[in-house]
Design a protein around this nucleic acid. Structure first.
Lengths: 195, 195
DNA sequence: ACTATCATGTAAGTAGTTACATGATTTG
DNA sequence: CAAATCATGTAACTACTTACATGATAGT
């Protein structure tokens, strides 16, 4: 249940509504975590019952809003969670699963799938890099790096490195598939090949 | 619902029981997909109702077993799934989420967390590399690469590349955190710092 | 005798998605 | 005046995990 801690993390910056929290999510950690409003609202409710947040119903701009704030207990739990050692989470990749069984289909299709993945990945990379550039400029102008920005940069870095490694791997896969095609001629017997 | 297709993929190699499927999982795609028996059995049942597998109850080695086989419809669905273009799945990382908020705790703790992650990751890498070495030797002796082995190698490759990139990133994070510590002296004001 | 492995499940709970429901306010 | 945005939720469903239940066989 990381969502709870993510919400506590944002509320630790400032008090806000569930709707605003959703926006914070999308604009900051959206690259590696996302949450829907239909998940955020019930979670905030159970967090209220737990006593890690308080809520205040107000009428602002003639709209009914529920502004949530972190409590002392909430801060305590957030810090405890942050200090806990992190175990590396196991991979769970549909893509690799599919690839594992791809000897059943033609190499041409697999290669075109990789080409499409590379395109998608390059787009993502561009978006990441623009975001980082934005962060960098903002903090260069202030003359020093905020404590928070240091960590934000580390997560952004991961996104870039991860995406670059992925593209490289895709390119190598294409090469290996093309080479295997040549090697295979007259050497490999194709039983049960559907193509 | 990738589990269904994974099960079809294995049953396409040969007919077997749910228990054996679990073993296949762990020993082949365990690095990027895992399934528990309590998930496999009900899924096989619903697949039977769908008509993508048949089952035969037999008594082998004086044990009651249900041997599942893939049907023509099952093969069709497997191929269709394999040929479908794959979208890149969004990241979902508790680790990055935690790091994002880590300005709230001391740098020393974060650094030691990274050091622990590197250790865990190196262990994983060793296991991967041994598995690949094993595959390589097995197929060198046969003189050529089986169609399947080509794809198995690509997935194993991903595991290695991913893990290596991760370790590199961790190491860079540690360096950046240590440098920031030096830079910060006398320049950054620490408000609300709990340490 | 006991422990591990083989073998098949059910039941309850968690995390998250998708669809639905409602209504106000703001912007083009 | 229509569409987008602000704002809060419920209900149903999916995928998966954890705990429980049962019983046979094989090896130490």
């Amino acid at each position: 249940m990381s969502l709870k801690y993510a919400l506590l993390g944002f509320l630790n910056y400032e008090s806000m509504t569930g709707y605003q929290l959703k926006k914070y999510f999308d604009e900051s950690v959206g690259g590696f975590w996302n949450a829907s409003l239909s998940q955020i609202y019930p979670t905030l409710n159970s967090m209220y019952e737990e006593g890690v947040v308080t809520s205040e119903e107000v009428q602002l701009d003639s709209l009914n809003k529920k502004i949530y704030s972190i409590t002392a207990k909430g801060k305590e739990e957030l810090l405890k969670w942050l200090e806990e050692p992190t175990e590396i989470q196991p991979l769970r990749s549909t893509l690799l699963l599919k690839l594992y069984f791809s000897s059943n289909i033609s190499k041409e299709i697999v290669i075109s799938q990789f080409e499409s993945l590379i395109k998608q990945s390059r787009l993502k990379l561009e978006i990441y890099e623009k975001g980082i550039e934005h962060l960098r400029k903002e903090h260069l102008s202030t003359g020093y790096m905020k404590q928070e920005a240091l960590y934000w940069n580390l997560t952004a870095d991961y996104g870039v490195k991860h995406q670059e490694a992925f593209i490289k791997w895709c390119e190598e896969c294409i090469l290996k598939l093309k080479n295997a095609e040549k090697d295979a001629e007259g050497r490999v017997t194709f039983e049960d090949n559907n193509y």
